[in-house]
Simulated scan of single mutants.
Amino acid sequence: MRGWGLKYYFRSITEELFQLHDKLRKQWPGLSRIAVAIYDNETDILHTFIKSSPDEELLNHYSVQLKDVPSLVELANSGECRIMQDLMVLQQNDSVHSKVISQHFKSSYTEPFYVAGDLLGFVFYDADECGYFTDELIDHLQTYSRLIESLIVSEILPIKTLVALMNVTQEITNLRDSETGKHLIRMAHYMELIAIELAEEYGFTDEQIEYIWCYAPLHDIGKIAISDSILLKPGRHTAEETKIMRTHVVEGLKMVDRMLQNFSFQQFHHIDILKDIIGSHHEWYDGSGYPNGLKGDEIPIVGRIAAVADVFDALISNRVYRAGWSFDEVVDYLKAGKGKQFDPKCVDALIRNEDKIKEINNNFQDIYNV
């Protein structure tokens, strides 16, 4: 994986899924694809997460609002499974997912799964023959589904718990900053956009992009440790105040380490993604950033992505004290910072998604009178 590096290598759920799929195909060779999509209730977005498929490019990095897929909404609400013995019926649907699946496979079986009564996602099985899903096969798949769902929950639930713990900590300490909940959602979307654009070059999988998405809102968690007199100061900071303000990066890393130790999360194979987002999103591409003065490719790629996403949203968004910049003004600022503050590839990856950016900004707006 170029650029991503062995630092982030782990035995992923994707690898586990491939092993399960291999075992299933020994008895049912027509079962050609297993895939899992994860649901985010706050945004109503369904993300591709893991898959075992003969075509690695099939529905890569795909996301859709659940409300736009009525058949899946029906499954989510009913909790029932769905068997489609002839996928030709999907060719009349408008969704990209339905059309792609009907072009590549002949029949399918789908199960929703939940945590504490809340929808967490769907498991999809696809076959290359019509009428393939017999009662015997479905009985077998339901057992495998429980195993797959357990693997997913063991990965995703601790992340959600960690994020919730951080959020509760913010609320308890009454952290009040320009970083609203909507800002954090937007930033996660922008990081996802950039990661998807760079996926081929850096070898990002859907699984890794999901972790980037989950961890993005915690980038500035260390600001909890900064006093309100500095954090909320409306004017420019003094040199000493700036020095204190910059300690939020190290404080954030300390908070993560304490959370990991106290709640036994050290085994997370993807925790370095979180640490790199927190620890390096204020590093500058030319080496003049903080806290470590890293330069160029010395900066973890997720930190370079976060730097662009964070500054973009900070500038384009309205604040209680000012109106946001126009899209063109922000783009000009990012372009001017290429090779200085920002990784040029990350800037280019974001700004070539103008339509998606504007959609995100419209869907998750803060309401201020400016």
Results as ranks from 00 to 15, higher is better:
residue 162 L to E: 00
residue 89 V to Y: 13
residue 94 D to H: 14
residue 154 S to F: 08
residue 119 L to K: 02
residue 88 M to Q: 14
residue 79 G to K: 11
residue 90 L to F: 12
residue 111 E to H: 06
residue 133 F to L: 04
residue 166 M to C: 04
residue 80 E to L: 15
residue 101 I to P: 06
residue 87 L to K: 06
residue 164 A to F: 13
residue 135 D to R: 03
residue 123 V to M: 07
residue 140 H to G: 01
residue 148 I to P: 05
residue 106 K to Y: 12
residue 120 L to M: 14
residue 100 V to R: 11
residue 144 Y to F: 02
residue 125 Y to A: 04
residue 124 F to P: 13
residue 99 K to E: 15
residue 168 V to D: 03
residue 105 F to H: 07
residue 109 Y to A: 06
residue 142 Q to C: 11
residue 126 D to P: 00
residue 115 V to I: 05
residue 125 Y to W: 14
residue 142 Q to F: 08
residue 120 L to N: 03
residue 162 L to D: 00
residue 156 I to T: 09
residue 102 S to H: 08
residue 134 T to I: 09
residue 121 G to P: 15
residue 145 S to T: 08
residue 162 L to G: 00
residue 142 Q to L: 14
residue 143 T to P: 00
residue 162 L to H: 03
residue 142 Q to R: 10
residue 129 E to H: 09
residue 121 G to K: 00
residue 166 M to Q: 07
residue 121 G to S: 03
residue 149 E to A: 06
residue 98 S to N: 14
residue 134 T to G: 05
residue 144 Y to V: 05
residue 161 T to Q: 13
residue 86 D to I: 14
residue 127 A to Y: 08
residue 159 I to T: 11
residue 105 F to Y: 15
residue 119 L to H: 06
residue 99 K to V: 11
residue 102 S to I: 05
residue 106 K to A: 14
residue 162 L to W: 07
residue 163 V to C: 07
residue 128 D to H: 05
residue 164 A to Q: 14
residue 160 K to Q: 13
residue 93 N to G: 03
residue 138 I to F: 05
residue 105 F to N: 01
residue 107 S to I: 11
residue 110 T to V: 15
residue 130 C to N: 02
residue 116 A to T: 07
residue 98 S to R: 03
residue 94 D to Q: 13
residue 134 T to Y: 12
residue 135 D to S: 06
